[in-house]
Amino acid sequence: MTHDAPLLHGRNPALWRQGALILAGTVLIAVAARVSVPMWPVPMTLQGLAILVVGLSMGSRLGALTLLAYLAEGAVGLPVFAGGGAGLAYMAGPTGGFLLGFVAMAWIAGLAARGSLPAMIGASAVAALALYVPGLAWPYAVASGLGIDAGWASSEAGALWAGWMQPFLLGDAVKAVLAAVLVHAGFRATGR
């Protein structure tokens, strides 16, 4: 029997545990996506909070894998995105850049997994801000780079700031602190 035999027979407990954690993370994010405050151009949901919790509790690698799995679920048509959205057409819409940025958000937050509370808050804040890079690049690229005239696309910095970033900053700051406090308290309570 080779060293790889348990994996080939599906008996690798670490692999099963990681798969279960990824599935649980995608379910948490999908449920959080349903808690929505209507705003334009994208709704404000608890997705960001759930993604930060996933990254902080699972670490960078497993957190990023969880978000890739979440995106794959949405791409194949499972209604996991905000408002029950799903499919590639949804992913190419206004939220496309933010959806891709979720992977980086979880990865960055995961850099502080099992760290001190200040480290977790800092990583969460940086991760929340980093989400705006692809989030704002997407409507800019659609409007100016691709030349597509979509009502939500814009190549003007003022419009991107006013409609895509500024309304969400306070909520993102609260989510960053809350995620860090929740995960840190959870680790302390479980002795991890």
Rank of each mutant, 00 (worst) to 15 (best):
W107C: 05
G77S: 06
R61D: 00
V42K: 09
L62V: 00
Y70S: 03
L99S: 07
G158K: 13
G63C: 01
A24I: 06
M39Q: 14
A14N: 14
A14E: 15
L23I: 12
L15C: 06
A162E: 15
A157M: 14
L88C: 07
R11I: 03
V177I: 01
P6K: 04
G74N: 12
W164E: 04
A92D: 11
L88T: 15
V35N: 04
L111N: 07
A82M: 08
A141Y: 03
V183P: 13
T190I: 03
L67P: 10
V54L: 02
A159F: 12
S144M: 10
V133K: 07
G48V: 12
I29K: 08
R34F: 03
L146Q: 11
E156C: 03
G110C: 00
W40L: 07
H3G: 06
V126T: 08
L146N: 10
A119C: 05
Y132T: 06
H3N: 12
L129F: 10
V31A: 07
T66K: 02
A109E: 02
L28R: 13
T95Q: 05
F102N: 13
Q166G: 08
G151P: 14
A30P: 14
L49G: 02
G84C: 04
T190D: 06
L160I: 04
A143T: 10
L7N: 13
V53D: 02
G77M: 06
M1D: 14
G191P: 09
S155L: 04
F81A: 04
L46Q: 11
W40V: 09
M165S: 14
V181R: 03
V80M: 01
L99E: 00
A72H: 11
L7P: 09
L28N: 12
L146G: 07
A33C: 11
V126I: 14
L52A: 00
L111R: 15
W16R: 15
Y70H: 12
L46R: 14
A92C: 09
G171N: 12
